[in-house]
Amino acid sequence: MRLCTVRLSDGGTNAAALNSDRWIRLPFSDVGALLREDHWRQRVQDVIAAGGQDVDSETITTALAPVIAEPGKIVCCGHNYRAHIAEMGRPEPAFPTLFAKFADTLTGAFDEISLPNEAEQLDWEAELAVVVGATLVRATEAECRRAIAGYTVANDLSVRSWQRRTTQWLQGKAFDATTPLGPVMVTADECDPSDGLRVTCTVNGQEQQRGSTDDLLFDPIALLAYISTFTTLRPGDIVLTGTPGGVGAGSTPPRFLGDGAVVETEIEGIGMQRNVIRIQSNELTSSAS
């Protein structure tokens, strides 16, 4: 099953489900609201069986909102691909390296991403995002496996100059509307990261990242079990699983995104994002070409 959240002409949003080659509107404001409904899979099937109202095909490619518009929690894992850990010159961690984002950081899969001139050294980080579909408290791995609603694509665009101001990463990871989430959520029964899904990121047509989810140090199930030990995860919460090797900060010399850069982020079997970067000032120390 494939689900998305579309923007409406009146300023609202609407969840939608793919049925063959038709996208059908669902009676929920976004996919997160759907997931908070009991028996949500059956609700989708009932709407599809009843025919439903189509979503205009152009809307699917131009007016997508973040798949989950207002998650209660966004928990992210850094240093989780072995190749990325190696390129940053760090040892493999014994426990997940976690930080949080706010819902305000999310944006659509095809949105233009605009940043203030303070956002120097903007870097790309293609990531698999896990969407939680059931409440988890100190959950076993078996419970976590059953609780995964699905997977989507994220890019944890990071302002390295701010991230490195202190030992805490939050300020470099939380600029408003800098984390595209989508285009769709693919349900867990149709997508398994343990199969080794290809993760890529290109900048201005040049491939910068190519990795596979079988290189994850802590897989989605292990992350959910670990996180649920200290905080409750609920339907619609998001867990970003980390980025593979190839980030700009790991290059020699480091390379960063400039104004007008086109960033395409893709995960095999899920979909691709395409975001144009706009920065109020071009006075960056370096730019990706």
Rank of each mutant, 00 (worst) to 15 (best):
G248I: 04
A225R: 15
L217T: 10
L224A: 09
L223C: 09
T241R: 04
Q273Y: 03
I279N: 08
V239K: 14
D237S: 11
I270V: 05
A288I: 14
P244D: 04
S287N: 01
L257Q: 05
E268V: 09
S286Y: 06
L257W: 04
T241N: 06
G269V: 03
S228H: 12
R255S: 02
A249G: 09
I279W: 04
L233G: 14
N282A: 02
R274C: 06
T213F: 01
R278I: 03
P244H: 08
Q206V: 13
E283I: 00
I227D: 09
E207W: 02
I238A: 11
A288G: 01
T252N: 09
T213Q: 01
Y226D: 11
N204L: 03
A261Y: 00
I227M: 11
P254Q: 06
L217P: 04
D219E: 05
G242V: 15
L216N: 08
T241P: 00
T229M: 10
L233S: 13
T232G: 14
Q209R: 11
G245D: 07
L216Y: 09
E268M: 08
G211D: 05
G248W: 07
G271K: 04
E268W: 05
L284G: 12
L224Q: 06
A261N: 08
G245P: 00
D259M: 02
R255K: 06
P220S: 07
P220F: 05
P254L: 11
L217A: 07
L217R: 14
G246S: 08
N204K: 02
G269P: 09
Q280N: 04
Y226M: 04
S251H: 15
S212W: 05
R234A: 12
Q208H: 15
D215V: 03
I221E: 11
P253N: 06
Q273P: 02
G211Q: 13
D237V: 12
T213N: 02
E283T: 02
P254A: 13
Q208T: 15
D237G: 11
D219R: 09
R278F: 02
T231E: 15
M272R: 15
I277F: 02
R234C: 10
V263F: 00
